[in-house]
């Protein structure tokens, strides 16, 4: 059986002329059918929050001396850390693909005199950019530029 939505969802500003039954949520919300992808998409926010905390910790340790930084690097070899990063990577790829899928149609047909490139071109550009940035970062992080 379905659950109630917000009691005032889609209600007119003045009360209706007769008593109404409260609005119901769609049966499948939030984890059934297509809603699952949307809910997961939103839930990846938790991953960003945790990632942000980890980065803060790392930056903090940099200021606390080399021993502390090494300890952070050591901790990153922990299986839980690795697991978390794998999940975060999967989440990021999922979000990227979903977001890129929607991005082209969210471009207005015209902004002033400017027209956006064709939808396919936007998509190709987005993926090229993503892959490009990832490759660059990987090279930097692997020590390919700064030895």
């Amino acid at each position: 059986m379905s659950r109630n939505a917000h009691p005032h969802a889609m209600a007119p500003s003045k009360p209706g002329r007769t008593r109404t039954a409260p609005p119901q949520l769609p049966d499948r919300f939030p984890f059934g059918g297509r809603y699952l992808a949307y809910t997961l998409f939103d839930l990846t926010g938790i991953l960003y929050l945790l990632l942000g905390l980890l980065v803060l910790c790392a930056v903090w340790s940099l200021g606390s001396g080399e021993a502390s930084w090494n300890a952070v690097l050591e901790r990153h070899r922990n299986i839980f850390y690795l697991g978390f990063h794998a999940i975060a990577l999967a989440g990021l790829i999922f979000v990227g693909i979903r977001f890129f899928g929607f991005f082209p149609k969210a471009q207005p047909p015209r902004v002033g005199p400017l027209k956006p490139p064709p939808k396919g071109a936007i998509l190709v550009g987005l993926y090229a950019l993503w892959i490009g940035v990832t490759v660059c970062l990987s090279i930097v992080l692997a020590g390919g530029v700064f030895q």
Partner: peptide
């Protein structure tokens, strides 16, 4: 078969549409 979700229900399968009109 149920009335449209997210709308107050007037009767059976009939929902309150005035909110949408506003």
């Amino acid at each position: 078969v149920a009335p449209l979700a997210n709308f107050p229900v007037v009767r059976d399968l009939v929902i309150e549409a005035d909110g949408f009109m506003e």
